[in-house]
Protein backbone atom coordinates (compact mmCIF):
# COMPACT_ATOMS: atom_id res chain seq x y z
CA UNK A 1 0.00 0.00 0.00
CA UNK A 2 1.48 3.32 -0.94
CA UNK A 3 1.15 6.06 1.62
CA UNK A 4 2.48 8.96 -0.34
CA UNK A 5 3.42 9.58 -3.92
CA UNK A 6 5.88 12.20 -5.00
CA UNK A 7 6.05 13.26 -8.60
CA UNK A 8 8.46 15.69 -10.21
CA UNK A 9 9.06 17.56 -6.97
CA UNK A 10 11.17 20.67 -7.50
CA UNK A 11 12.22 23.59 -5.37
CA UNK A 12 14.13 26.70 -6.31
CA UNK A 13 15.42 29.49 -4.12
CA UNK A 14 15.95 32.70 -6.05
CA UNK A 15 16.34 30.85 -9.31
CA UNK A 16 18.74 28.38 -7.77
CA UNK A 17 17.30 24.91 -8.18
CA UNK A 18 17.93 22.98 -4.99
CA UNK A 19 15.64 20.05 -5.64
CA UNK A 20 15.71 18.98 -9.25
CA UNK A 21 12.73 16.73 -9.66
CA UNK A 22 12.17 13.90 -7.23
CA UNK A 23 9.94 10.93 -7.93
CA UNK A 24 9.33 8.30 -5.34
CA UNK A 25 6.69 6.37 -3.47
CA UNK A 26 6.66 5.60 0.22
CA UNK A 27 5.05 2.32 1.24
CA UNK A 28 3.11 1.94 4.45
CA UNK A 29 4.94 0.43 7.37
CA UNK A 30 8.44 0.86 5.98
CA UNK A 31 11.39 2.70 7.41
CA UNK A 32 13.09 4.77 4.77
CA UNK A 33 16.33 6.69 5.13
CA UNK A 34 16.91 9.83 3.15
CA UNK A 35 20.63 9.74 2.83
CA UNK A 36 22.96 12.30 1.40
CA UNK A 37 25.85 14.61 2.12
CA UNK A 38 25.28 18.06 3.62
CA UNK A 39 23.53 20.35 1.19
CA UNK A 40 21.99 17.53 -0.82
CA UNK A 41 18.48 18.84 -0.18
CA UNK A 42 17.32 16.47 2.55
CA UNK A 43 15.90 19.13 4.84
CA UNK A 44 14.21 20.95 1.97
CA UNK A 45 12.59 17.71 0.84
CA UNK A 46 11.25 16.94 4.31
CA UNK A 47 9.98 20.48 4.73
CA UNK A 48 8.06 20.20 1.49
CA UNK A 49 6.60 16.85 2.50
CA UNK A 50 5.49 18.27 5.83
CA UNK A 51 3.86 21.26 4.15
CA UNK A 52 6.14 23.85 5.73
CA UNK A 53 7.46 24.78 2.33
CA UNK A 54 5.68 24.98 -0.96
CA UNK A 55 7.22 23.12 -3.88
CA UNK A 56 8.10 25.14 -6.98
CA UNK A 57 6.76 22.32 -9.10
CA UNK A 58 5.54 18.77 -8.79
CA UNK A 59 3.04 17.04 -6.58
CA UNK A 60 2.92 15.31 -3.23
CA UNK A 61 -0.13 13.15 -2.81
CA UNK A 62 -1.07 11.39 0.37
CA UNK A 63 -3.57 8.60 -0.10
CA UNK A 64 -5.50 9.65 3.01
CA UNK A 65 -5.39 13.43 2.66
CA UNK A 66 -8.46 15.47 3.59
CA UNK A 67 -10.55 16.95 0.81
CA UNK A 68 -8.97 20.38 1.18
CA UNK A 69 -5.53 18.81 0.89
CA UNK A 70 -4.63 19.14 4.56
CA UNK A 71 -2.30 16.32 5.50
CA UNK A 72 -1.17 17.54 8.88
CA UNK A 73 -3.20 15.03 10.87
CA UNK A 74 -1.35 12.26 9.02
CA UNK A 75 2.19 13.34 9.71
CA UNK A 76 4.54 13.91 12.57
CA UNK A 77 7.58 16.05 11.97
CA UNK A 78 10.76 16.69 13.87
CA UNK A 79 12.91 19.51 12.50
CA UNK A 80 16.67 19.31 12.63
CA UNK A 81 16.80 21.81 15.47
CA UNK A 82 13.55 21.40 17.39
CA UNK A 83 12.38 24.50 19.25
CA UNK A 84 9.92 24.53 22.11
CA UNK A 85 8.38 27.07 24.41
CA UNK A 86 11.19 27.34 26.92
CA UNK A 87 8.83 28.37 29.69
CA UNK A 88 6.83 25.16 29.46
CA UNK A 89 7.87 21.89 31.04
CA UNK A 90 8.33 18.89 28.78
CA UNK A 91 5.14 17.38 30.14
CA UNK A 92 3.19 20.59 29.53
CA UNK A 93 4.49 20.89 25.99
CA UNK A 94 3.47 17.35 25.09
CA UNK A 95 0.00 17.83 26.53
CA UNK A 96 -0.35 21.12 24.69
CA UNK A 97 0.67 19.63 21.36
CA UNK A 98 -1.47 16.55 21.99
CA UNK A 99 -4.54 18.66 22.59
CA UNK A 100 -3.82 20.72 19.49
CA UNK A 101 -3.63 17.49 17.52
CA UNK A 102 -7.12 16.61 18.67
CA UNK A 103 -6.68 14.52 21.80
CA UNK A 104 -8.90 15.23 24.78
CA UNK A 105 -7.23 16.58 27.93
CA UNK A 106 -7.32 13.15 29.51
CA UNK A 107 -5.94 11.36 26.46
CA UNK A 108 -3.25 13.99 26.02
CA UNK A 109 -2.15 13.57 29.61
CA UNK A 110 -1.99 9.79 29.48
CA UNK A 111 -0.28 9.72 26.10
CA UNK A 112 2.27 12.32 27.25
CA UNK A 113 3.20 10.29 30.31
CA UNK A 114 3.51 7.19 28.20
CA UNK A 115 5.75 8.94 25.66
CA UNK A 116 7.92 10.60 28.29
CA UNK A 117 8.55 7.11 29.61
CA UNK A 118 9.16 5.71 26.13
CA UNK A 119 11.73 8.34 25.14
CA UNK A 120 13.34 8.18 28.56
CA UNK A 121 12.90 11.69 29.92
CA UNK A 122 10.16 11.10 32.49
CA UNK A 123 12.54 12.14 35.27
CA UNK A 124 12.74 15.59 33.74
CA UNK A 125 9.08 15.91 32.82
CA UNK A 126 8.39 18.81 35.16
CA UNK A 127 11.54 20.71 34.33
CA UNK A 128 11.33 23.70 32.02
CA UNK A 129 12.32 22.82 28.46
CA UNK A 130 14.71 25.77 28.53
CA UNK A 131 16.84 23.77 30.93
CA UNK A 132 16.92 20.61 28.80
CA UNK A 133 20.12 19.36 27.19
CA UNK A 134 20.36 18.89 23.44
CA UNK A 135 19.73 15.17 23.73
CA UNK A 136 16.67 15.66 25.90
CA UNK A 137 15.24 18.17 23.46
CA UNK A 138 15.75 15.70 20.64
CA UNK A 139 13.84 13.05 22.59
CA UNK A 140 11.08 15.45 23.46
CA UNK A 141 11.02 16.32 19.76
CA UNK A 142 10.48 12.70 18.83
CA UNK A 143 7.76 12.37 21.44
CA UNK A 144 5.87 15.41 20.14
CA UNK A 145 6.15 14.12 16.57
CA UNK A 146 4.40 10.84 17.37
CA UNK A 147 1.92 11.97 20.01
CA UNK A 148 -1.09 11.79 17.67
CA UNK A 149 0.02 8.43 16.20
CA UNK A 150 0.58 9.77 12.70
CA UNK A 151 0.79 7.49 9.67
CA UNK A 152 4.09 8.98 8.64
CA UNK A 153 6.79 10.26 10.95
CA UNK A 154 9.44 12.46 9.40
CA UNK A 155 12.60 13.09 11.34
CA UNK A 156 15.25 15.49 10.12
CA UNK A 157 18.68 14.34 11.27
CA UNK A 158 17.35 12.93 14.53
CA UNK A 159 20.68 11.57 15.73
CA UNK A 160 23.30 13.82 14.16
CA UNK A 161 23.54 16.16 17.12
CA UNK A 162 23.71 13.45 19.75
CA UNK A 163 26.62 11.82 21.52
CA UNK A 164 27.21 8.08 20.95
CA UNK A 165 25.01 7.05 23.87
CA UNK A 166 22.17 9.29 22.87
CA UNK A 167 22.53 8.12 19.30
CA UNK A 168 22.31 4.49 20.36
CA UNK A 169 19.17 5.13 22.39
CA UNK A 170 17.39 7.14 19.74
CA UNK A 171 18.17 4.49 17.13
CA UNK A 172 16.69 1.87 19.42
CA UNK A 173 13.66 4.09 19.84
CA UNK A 174 13.27 4.25 16.07
CA UNK A 175 13.64 0.50 15.87
CA UNK A 176 10.64 0.18 18.20
CA UNK A 177 8.70 2.86 16.36
CA UNK A 178 9.08 0.98 13.10
CA UNK A 179 6.46 -1.47 14.27
CA UNK A 180 3.87 1.25 14.72
CA UNK A 181 4.25 3.60 11.81
CA UNK A 182 6.04 4.57 8.62
CA UNK A 183 9.28 6.43 9.24
CA UNK A 184 11.20 8.67 6.91
CA UNK A 185 14.36 10.05 8.36
CA UNK A 186 17.23 11.98 6.92
CA UNK A 187 20.82 11.47 7.88
CA UNK A 188 24.30 11.82 6.54
CA UNK A 189 25.53 9.03 8.76
CA UNK A 190 25.56 5.85 6.76
CA UNK A 191 25.67 3.45 9.65
CA UNK A 192 22.50 4.87 11.11
CA UNK A 193 20.63 4.39 7.89
CA UNK A 194 22.01 0.89 7.52
CA UNK A 195 21.08 -0.03 11.05
CA UNK A 196 17.43 0.94 11.22
CA UNK A 197 16.14 1.19 7.71
CA UNK A 198 14.76 -1.20 5.16
CA UNK A 199 15.07 1.20 2.30
CA UNK A 200 17.35 3.97 1.27
CA UNK A 201 16.96 7.01 -0.92
CA UNK A 202 20.28 8.54 -1.87
CA UNK A 203 19.99 12.22 -2.42
CA UNK A 204 22.80 14.13 -4.05
CA UNK A 205 22.65 17.67 -5.43
CA UNK A 206 18.88 17.64 -5.33
CA UNK A 207 18.44 14.39 -7.20
CA UNK A 208 17.85 10.82 -6.19
CA UNK A 209 20.95 9.12 -7.46
CA UNK A 210 20.22 5.68 -6.07
CA UNK A 211 17.48 3.95 -4.16
CA UNK A 212 16.34 0.55 -3.03
CA UNK A 213 16.50 -1.86 -0.16
CA UNK A 214 19.81 -2.62 1.51
CA UNK A 215 19.96 -6.03 -0.13
CA UNK A 216 19.28 -4.64 -3.58
CA UNK A 217 21.90 -1.98 -3.17
CA UNK A 218 24.51 -4.46 -2.05
CA UNK A 219 23.79 -6.74 -4.96
CA UNK A 220 23.90 -3.94 -7.43
CA UNK A 221 27.15 -2.55 -6.16
CA UNK A 222 28.79 -5.72 -5.01
CA UNK A 223 32.47 -5.73 -5.70
CA UNK A 224 34.92 -8.29 -4.56
CA UNK A 225 37.57 -6.63 -2.51
CA UNK A 226 40.39 -8.03 -0.45
CA UNK A 227 41.99 -5.92 2.23
CA UNK A 228 45.56 -6.72 3.17
CA UNK A 229 47.38 -5.07 6.00
CA UNK A 230 51.08 -5.65 6.32
CA UNK A 231 53.46 -5.00 9.15
CA UNK A 232 55.54 -3.04 6.73
CA UNK A 233 54.52 -2.35 3.19
CA UNK A 234 57.13 -2.32 0.43
CA UNK A 235 57.24 -1.21 -3.18
CA UNK A 236 57.58 -4.80 -4.21
CA UNK A 237 54.27 -5.77 -2.63
CA UNK A 238 52.55 -2.90 -4.31
CA UNK A 239 53.76 -3.79 -7.78
CA UNK A 240 53.16 -7.50 -7.25
CA UNK A 241 49.49 -6.96 -6.47
CA UNK A 242 49.06 -4.27 -9.03
CA UNK A 243 50.32 -6.52 -11.77
CA UNK A 244 48.55 -9.68 -10.69
CA UNK A 245 46.29 -11.06 -13.38
CA UNK A 246 43.32 -11.21 -10.99
CA UNK A 247 43.53 -7.58 -9.99
CA UNK A 248 41.14 -5.01 -11.38
CA UNK A 249 42.41 -2.09 -9.35
CA UNK A 250 44.12 -1.40 -6.07
CA UNK A 251 43.93 1.24 -3.39
CA UNK A 252 46.83 2.01 -1.07
CA UNK A 253 46.33 3.53 2.33
CA UNK A 254 49.33 3.43 4.64
CA UNK A 255 50.13 -0.19 5.28
CA UNK A 256 46.87 -1.33 3.78
CA UNK A 257 46.47 -2.56 0.28
CA UNK A 258 42.89 -3.00 -0.94
CA UNK A 259 42.70 -5.10 -4.04
CA UNK A 260 39.57 -5.25 -6.16
CA UNK A 261 39.56 -8.64 -7.86
CA UNK A 262 37.59 -10.45 -10.48
CA UNK A 263 37.22 -13.72 -8.59
CA UNK A 264 37.45 -13.72 -4.81
CA UNK A 265 37.93 -17.44 -4.31
CA UNK A 266 40.84 -17.84 -6.71
CA UNK A 267 42.35 -14.60 -5.52
CA UNK A 268 42.22 -15.71 -1.92
CA UNK A 269 44.11 -18.91 -2.59
CA UNK A 270 46.60 -17.27 -4.85
CA UNK A 271 47.27 -14.26 -2.65
CA UNK A 272 47.75 -16.33 0.47
CA UNK A 273 50.14 -18.63 -1.34
CA UNK A 274 52.02 -15.67 -2.72
CA UNK A 275 52.33 -14.00 0.64
CA UNK A 276 53.61 -17.09 2.39
CA UNK A 277 56.09 -17.82 -0.41
CA UNK A 278 57.50 -14.34 -0.18
CA UNK A 279 57.36 -14.52 3.60
CA UNK A 280 55.72 -11.11 3.88
CA UNK A 281 54.50 -10.22 7.35
CA UNK A 282 50.75 -10.08 7.02
CA UNK A 283 48.80 -8.55 9.92
CA UNK A 284 45.33 -8.81 8.51
CA UNK A 285 43.64 -10.48 5.62
CA UNK A 286 40.02 -9.60 4.98
CA UNK A 287 37.54 -10.28 2.27
CA UNK A 288 35.23 -7.35 2.59
CA UNK A 289 31.77 -6.90 1.29
CA UNK A 290 30.60 -3.57 0.04
CA UNK A 291 29.48 -1.33 2.87
CA UNK A 292 26.95 1.39 2.47
CA UNK A 293 29.78 3.82 2.75
CA UNK A 294 31.40 2.36 -0.33
CA UNK A 295 28.14 2.58 -2.21
CA UNK A 296 27.76 6.14 -1.02
CA UNK A 297 31.22 7.15 -2.17
CA UNK A 298 30.74 5.43 -5.46
CA UNK A 299 27.34 6.96 -6.11
CA UNK A 300 28.29 10.44 -5.00
CA UNK A 301 31.60 10.31 -6.75
CA UNK A 302 30.25 9.71 -10.20
Amino acid sequence: MSLIQIKGLKKSFQGNEVIKGLDFVLEKGKCIALLGPNGAGKTTTLRMLSGLMKPTAGSISFSDAKKDGDIRHLIGYLPQFPVFYDWMSGFEFLQYVGKLAGLTSKEAKERSLELLEQVGISDAKNRRVGKYSGGMKQRLGIAQAIIHRPQLVMLDEPVSALDPFGRREVLELLEGLKKETTILFSTHILNDAEEVCDEILFLHNGEIVESGTMVELRERHQQAKIDLIFRKKTEEMESTFRNNHLTKSILIDGNRISVFVTDVETARKEFLKLISNKDWQLDKFEISSMTLEDVFMKVVGK
Partner: peptide, 13 residues
Protein backbone atom coordinates in the same frame (compact mmCIF):
# COMPACT_ATOMS: atom_id res chain seq x y z
CA UNK B 1 11.71 33.41 13.92
CA UNK B 2 12.51 30.96 16.68
CA UNK B 3 10.95 28.11 14.73
CA UNK B 4 8.40 27.12 17.33
CA UNK B 5 5.59 28.26 15.01
CA UNK B 6 6.63 25.55 12.58
CA UNK B 7 6.55 22.97 15.37
CA UNK B 8 3.01 23.97 16.25
CA UNK B 9 1.58 24.53 12.79
CA UNK B 10 2.81 21.24 11.42
CA UNK B 11 0.14 19.84 13.72
CA UNK B 12 -3.44 20.12 12.46
CA UNK B 13 -3.88 23.60 13.94
Amino acid sequence: KSGVAAMILVKPV
